[in-house]
Design a protein around this nucleic acid. Sequence first.
DNA 1: TTGAATCCCATAAAATACCATGTTATACCA
DNA 2: TGGTATAACATGGTATTTTATGGGATTCAA
Lengths: 155, 155
Amino acid sequence: MRKVFLFMDTIINKVDAKGRVSLPSDYRAIVKDLESEIVCYRSLSLPCIEGCLEETLDKLATDIEDSTDFFSETQDNLTNLIFGDAKRFTFDSTGRIMLSEKLLKHAGITDTAVFVGKGRKFQIWNPENWEKEEQRIREEVLKNRPVLKKQKDTE
Amino acid sequence: MRKVFLFMDTIINKVDAKGRVSLPSDYRAIVKDLESEIVCYRSLSLPCIEGCLEETLDKLATDIEDSTDFFSETQDNLTNLIFGDAKRFTFDSTGRIMLSEKLLKHAGITDTAVFVGKGRKFQIWNPENWEKEEQRIREEVLKNRPVLKKQKDTE
DNA sequence: TTGAATCCCATAAAATACCATGTTATACCA
DNA sequence: TGGTATAACATGGTATTTTATGGGATTCAA
């Protein structure tokens, strides 16, 4: 059993007419090893699909349970938004998942999907949008280089 | 056997003239796997039906027993409301439950029901009401973005 | 016996599993 | 190191299963 898991790399796969797309084989290996499942949902802030392991979301659910009482309304909004949008995606024997129309539309994905590893999570992008986003991120990181360094130093 | 369970996704199903509605198949799978039952009751604060596993309510009962507020009046009132209202709903061989007139009326549901996953719980809405509620939540969450971020960071 | 609840059957559509093939990546050996 | 054999992978297509949902038959209770 693996001690750690990280969704990594950037992988481009085709999306067919049914919305089927191969989950990168590295991701599948993680799911199998940890006996978990992939869960996807629309990013709250970006035009992309976000994914993680079911156990990651389960941890979130437990945290919410533990931090508030059963009838609390404070976390109600959040759980509706996150769990109401999320969905399990199991892959078939050939390693494909079937993304829903809702998710594909949110990310503007038609025939090609870009999987971007983010550690505990990953994202799925439309290729053009990802190119732009990557550019934007690179610029922002460069701009904030001194701050980034300072933060590291002070920690 | 599954390690975790989460009610997720948003699913729209028809309610027929007899008040029958298909429980989403993912939800049924959870009930079967955990050999539990679905329990529904009127939401205390919203015009919707709330549902969860019977074992979740059982856990609530235990927590209340164990809490120092055993004789608290507010706790008393809440448990009266919830347990007085809650009821088991078993699904038939085709996966349908029959919602009561009381619940349907409270949620304003006539011929269509929207199931919204909330993690350990789920809600059942009238489509128009849910649309409005979702809009409201999105606006509120966006407004409270810093709070959301802080919560995320502490994970 | 009448109304309501439960069960059973039928069907269309959608989701899922399976098979086949070309391609790419990996392992192996000279 | 170069070349070849082997395995893994992505992907198109098809078959099978599951699901939602309408309609009736049967059971149960008031």
